[in-house]
Design a protein around this nucleic acid. Structure first.
Lengths: 282, 282
DNA sequence: TGACTAGTGGAACAAATATTTCAATCTTCG
DNA sequence: CGAAGATTGAAATATTTGTTCCACTAGTCA
């Protein structure tokens, strides 16, 4: 091992570890780098599991963990692990206090950022909670059945909801499921969506205030005999009229902005659930 | 040992442990009671230290810890400690096991859907929790300062992360803040991003596996004197090298898919925070 | 009071875990 | 192309850690 990597024991706190890694990581060999990535991505894992369990998850040998720790100047893996454990110890009470402080005292202008962030986090958590209790598992089941049998999945969503369908396009693509994203480029949305035929399935996403184009495309598809699955905010949505299956996701808002957390969680579920079905059928 | 204390392995979660203790504690011998008190008072200690360290803090022998665990029906101290560790971990791996069990056991379909949804909801919640405690409010403050002073905000993100910048484009637009979305249409991404000049600000979003084009655009912008704000998953990200401010968001994953909840919450915070600043300046 | 039982401390033991070592492999540079 | 060096995987080893056992104590009931 080159001598330059050998130094006295580095700072025993997590921040110190990250700082150290920031400068050393680029110079580290492949496997050690792999460990570095894993350590930053899964710090809890590093704190709570044994060396061989961590090594397995990181895709390396246990000995590599020891080498990694030593390359950074720690005496061994155990010493490095203490860094992660102390982080876990401090982090919990620390953030509980901060949260309580924020809630009680009307925050000053300086931590406006914290208040906003906290607000959006809360809205997201509330949305997820509602999703958990509000959605019928049978409906997801029906949806994934439909999607798994589709020749092509046509994804429609605009404005606020475009990110959701864009994500679905990515996820389906990665899972090897044929899907096309209607992005309305050059105002060709109607033509893009119009190519759907029986045998295909449309997924349309829209919440209040509903984008007329999305409703229109769903209506046209349905009339053409294309099954339509809708993600919307409530059962009275104008979209609900033009669909075969309606999945309701009510997001909580903070200020003028609504969370997207529940919608994305549902989207991921649909994508993976469909992939599982497709695989089982084959 | 009296037979009544011997039972099958109790529930492996922390709630179960507390419930069990509530009814058994009064009947326990002195030293075991002492352990019970310590366990409830210092659950983190129970999760993160070795048996002899814990024993010392609790004022008992290591063997007493083992007896305590066994008196409650666990096979030994190690098994009991896992209960405390999973509490810290917020039971994430538990879901993987359940999903694996479902696959093997061939459970009913509706169950599969529930497990998936539950898994993604958990991953989202864990991500939000990490965001809450892991992000420095000062960094958000700095980011919104930079954004509020920008003439035009240039938004760069690809593949998995495209939905985030697409959302930001929507949000900034709605808030009356000038922003352009680099969507790489017709492979014109470099030209789209290349129009950024000093006085503008670029927001680049990318997590592993990093899209080379995004890194490249951030590097070019930075070299041209355009301030770059980066949203990425860890400090070692190749994007971190080419930015003026690095916001780290580590999302929890479930299966092969990572949550987007924390990234979106942060994006909303940035958008609204910037709007507040712009309004105050005027 | 004396025998019996449950409880306890501490040492011996067994198991799990981290660490070291060494041979094989891949890189790099002459 | 070939040699020197770095890197890696896997087995051997050393250490730590958890567990069991047994002698001893304290409390309880005949």
């Amino acid at each position: 091992m080159s001598a330059e990597l050998q130094q006295g024991t580095p700072r025993p706190d997590f921040e110190g570890f990250v700082a150290l890694l920031r400068e050393r990581a680029p110079l580290l060999p492949r496997r050690l780098r792999q460990v570095a990535d894993h350590a930053l991505a899964h710090p809890d894992d590093m704190a709570l599991n044994t060396a061989s369990q961590i090594a397995q998850k990181a895709g390396v040998q246990p000995s590599t963990l020891v080498r990694f720790a030593q390359a950074l100047g720690y005496s061994g893996f155990s010493e490095l692990q203490q860094v992660f454990r102390s982080r876990l110890r401090q982090q919990l009470p620390d953030h509980r206090e901060r949260l309580a402080a924020l809630r009680n005292g009307g925050a000053a202008g300086a931590d406006m950022a914290s208040v906003l962030l906290d607000g959006f986090i809360h809205a997201s958590e509330a949305s997820l909670e509602r999703l958990r209790s509000g959605l019928r598992p049978d409906d997801i089941e029906t949806a994934t059945d439909m999607l798994a049998e589709a020749r092509t999945i046509v994804l429609v969503g605009a404005r606020r909801m475009f990110p959701v369908v864009a994500y679905l396009a990515y996820a389906f693509g990665k899972l090897g499921i044929r899907a096309v994203l209607v992005d309305n480029i050059a105002s060709l949305g109607a033509e893009q969506a119009g190519m759907a035929r029986p045998g295909d399935v449309m997924v349309a996403v829209s919440c209040a205030p509903y984008t007329p184009a999305t409703i229109e495309m769903a209506a046209v598809a349905k009339a053409a005999g294309v099954p339509v699955i809708v993600l919307t905010d409530n059962a009275l949505s104008p979209l609900a009229a033009h669909c075969d299956l309606c999945l309701e996701v009510s997001e909580a808002d903070y200020g003028a902005f609504r969370s997207m957390a529940a919608t994305f969680a549902l989207a991921m579920t649909l994508a993976v659930g469909t992939a599982e079905k497709v695989r089982d059928d084959a």
